[in-house]
Amino acid sequence: MVHAEGVRKHFGKVSVLRGIDLSVERGRVCCLLGPSGSGKSTFLRCINHLEKIDGGSLSVDGAPVGHRQQGNRLYELKEREIARARRDIGMVFQRFNLFPHMTALENVMEAPVKVAGVTRAEARADALRLLDRVGLADRAERYPAQLSGGQQQRVAIARALAMKPKLMLFDEPTSALDPELVGEVLDVMRQLAAEGMTMVVVTHEIGFAREVADTAVFMDGGVVVEAGDPRQVLGDPQQERTRTFLSKVL
């Protein structure tokens, strides 16, 4: 589903990604771990082209991100084509980024109605079903400011799912939450993983990674330090850097 080879990215003179190799198979959950500044969020944002890569190759479902391949050449995509590609990739942000001027229901309905062209009635039914799935059917008419962080993040997950994505990206989805609200969001993600959604999750929740992930990837300084079975990477890390990091967060 996601295939990265030697992905590079720099902001000005600072190299953020220095050759990332990574593969996520369909239906698998991949957790990206590592200290802040290690490039894990940047890499995640490259997958749906919120950031442009400067080198290497990155493809989602066989299609190179941000490009169209014809023979030996890659053509840069137009805005319209980039937007088209993003429909299939859901993203959940650390700061929720719900649209504050819309109710929870309107947040979830917005993209299906305005982007996918679904009728309002159909989108509404779909949205209510999704809100129910994340346990917020009774909060559909609330504005984001009237919801707790955990509830907002669950609405954000429902909003991303409304476009029926084949891949979900999570950018530290629980980092902005009160400790007691983390669980409700992780529960929804756990359920999603169990249903076979392909997920790439940037997280600091070691427990969640160990339990749910098929692959754990430890990143530092813009490179993958260690990757593999989470029990191996998190339980018995082979690299010194991974060990010092884990000893600090556990």
């Binding site: 749906n48 429909r87 719900l98 917005e110 993209a111 305005k114 982007v115 996918a116």
Partner: peptide, 27 residues
Amino acid sequence: VDAGQAEAAHSLGMRPALTTRRIVLPQ
């Protein structure tokens, strides 16, 4: 308007013009 708003809209497949009209301008 917070840049995260436009990013969220883009991640849902909304094009720049639609994002401006539906998400950024109302805020």
